[in-house]
Design a protein around this nucleic acid. Structure first.
Lengths: 333, 333
DNA sequence: GACACAATTTAACTAATGTTCAACGCGGCT
DNA sequence: AGCCGCGTTGAACATTAGTTAAATTGTGTC
């Protein structure tokens, strides 16, 4: 008998361990099944399995740790929301809004504008001061804004207007924007770019522009876009930055601009005459606005967006799926 | 202005409803994502989304209701456990144990025996009285039982022995079973089937067999199998039921037996001489045993298992995947 | 057979989740 | 314009889940 007992204890226990490796597995899956699939409480699981509740808690957390339970969110929106969350986490945003983009080779302006419009509609409320930039994308959002009269709203242009251009014009955009909300519009009574730093200083110091910009800085929210340095971008098309200047900006390391503040990859303002002649809110001032919304997208904008994100530290970004993916590829780890 | 406002409220709101159908969808998926995928608390989700916690709870439960969140348990065991739970619920069992069966056309005896052996090992403890039946499957479990001495265990045979047969013999099985646990064995000192009801009555009333059966009834657990009415089944192979009797049992509506109690589809004992000549615990008595474990499987056993389940109301069933599937097809809704 | 160690259970407590109900605001209606 | 449903929100409460530490049980060892 003793011999028999020894034999068994020498053979059975190793067997049990080798054979199953994990004697609890069946019990664990059983617990997971009853809890997750049958949606009972842990107390009920414990009763069904004849064990105590604490053991059930342990089994369940073990099952999750081992990946024997998978929770999936599936919806056409799930993938986009995943990307949004990744952007939020990668760049420390309060909110990323990623617009769906059926064809990645297509211009994302329209879909971004629609998403931005929706966001603006639900974000702008009574008693707000809204600082607005300018650009093709921002202009396109106008079509998606509700014509909704709000009380005590001020719209402040964050950069000078361009007298000659009628359609694509900061002043015109800010004006239309203000009208939609029945808001008071504050425009900058000067061109976006002047001839010399001298003129700029004069305008700021002697013509009260600085006060307008101080007001801009007190905005509750800034709606901004950014421009690349390719020849396609609005500023060049409108001829306010010459091709020679564009080349020298590139030479100076600029990857694009935010309100005509041209910055390099690191997000620093490049040393270039254009930067000393622009009539717009400086990046330091922009940073003091509580909510900074960067609305932009497209392959040619990746570099400037990354730079702008670095400097501006926007609280919200509105972009498209393709751009979001590219931004994430370059995201800090 | 008023006209404009009317126009917009007349067009936009229906648009919003038609276009999205469910304005909360994005928020809901977002909440589900943060909660389930990122594994934050509902409080954190509320903060991330700028809504209150109660709203998050509601969004999440809505998402689950809509199936936008799916929780899956995946493991090689998951499918078997699903079947076990279905059996448990369909037949009101405390426990169903389903043994995996690679080839459904194969004889499931071995795999059922292994599963039953594991179950018995972890179920039989000190101070228990175990009533045991008999059959090919039960016999096969012996190979899977741990030779583990227990204190104060009694093994009671639930039916008479068959003196002539050495290997497949209730007495022999009970004896071996008892030995493994170092238990005291109580065998029924009589054949399983006698010549007449007269003899049965004599044995029960005058030879003290009834007392043995009363003791059997007081068992903590009964390990039972069941037999079909095909010629393959043990009882016929061993020649204790003749082919003529088998035919007349079928004619009387019998679909099989539990301890030589032949029953029909409805679970009732059929009116047949064999039933008045068997020396075994009656079905009524079996029902009074607290734990009734039915161990059986195979295509030819479906009918008798269903009938046995109906009458016996086992607390546990041990079977194989294929049999389990067939039982579920015939399960009461 | 007694002791010591390990593992598991019990119990108590804290955190998280789910539910209820009263208050609030918003549109539609008179 | 004011009133009345209607749905939404937020606070309080109830339930469920997760954690920790003491107590118990079982196991192996001497």
């Amino acid at each position: 008998m003793g011999g028999l007992a020894n034999l068994k204890s020498a053979t059975r226990e190793p067997n049990a361990k080798v054979a199953s490796g994990d004697p609890q597995r069946a019990l664990r899956i059983r617990a997971a099944w009853i809890y997750y699939v049958e949606e009972r409480t842990q107390q009920e699981v414990a009763e069904a399995l004849g064990i105590n509740r604490v053991a059930v808690t342990r089994l369940l957390s073990e099952a999750r740790k081992r990946g024997e339970v998978s929770i999936r969110v599936h919806s056409d929106l799930a993938e986009i929301i995943r990307v949004e969350r990744e952007l939020e986490q990668a760049f420390g945003l309060k909110r990323a809004i990623v617009a769906p983009l059926s064809d990645p080779s297509k211009d994302p302006t329209k879909t971004i504008a629609a998403a931005a419009g929706r966001y603006i509609n639900q974000t702008i409320t009574h008693n707000m001061t809204v600082g607005v930039g300018w650009g093709r994308t921002l202009h396109a959002t106008l079509a998606h804004l509700e014509n909704r009269p709000l009380k005590n709203v001020r719209v402040v242009s964050l950069l000078g207007g361009i007298s000659e251009a009628k359609r694509f014009n900061p002043a015109e955009f800010a004006w239309q924007f203000a009208e939609l909300f029945d808001a008071e519009g504050f425009l900058v009574p000067a061109p976006a770019l002047v001839d010399s730093n001298q003129t700029k200083i004069s305008l700021l110091e002697h013509c009260g522009l600085d006060q307008v910009f101080q007001m801009a800085e007190a905005s509750d929210i800034a709606l901004l876009s950014c421009g690349g340095v390719t020849s396609l971008t609005t500023s060049y098309r409108l001829g306010h930055v010459s091709e020679a200047e564009r080349q020298s900006l590139i030479a100076a390391g600029a990857v694009g601009d935010v309100l005509y503040n041209f910055i390099n990859e690191a997000g620093a303002v490049v040393d270039h005459s254009v930067n000393s002649r622009c009539i717009s809110v400086s990046l330091e001032r922009l940073q003091r606005i509580k909510e900074r919304v960067l609305i932009s997208g497209g392959a040619e904008k990746i570099a400037i967006m990354l730079a702008a994100i670095r400097t501006l530290q926007p609280t919200t970004i509105v972009t498209d799926e393709a751009t979001a993916g590219r931004l994430l590829e370059s995201a800090p780890r």
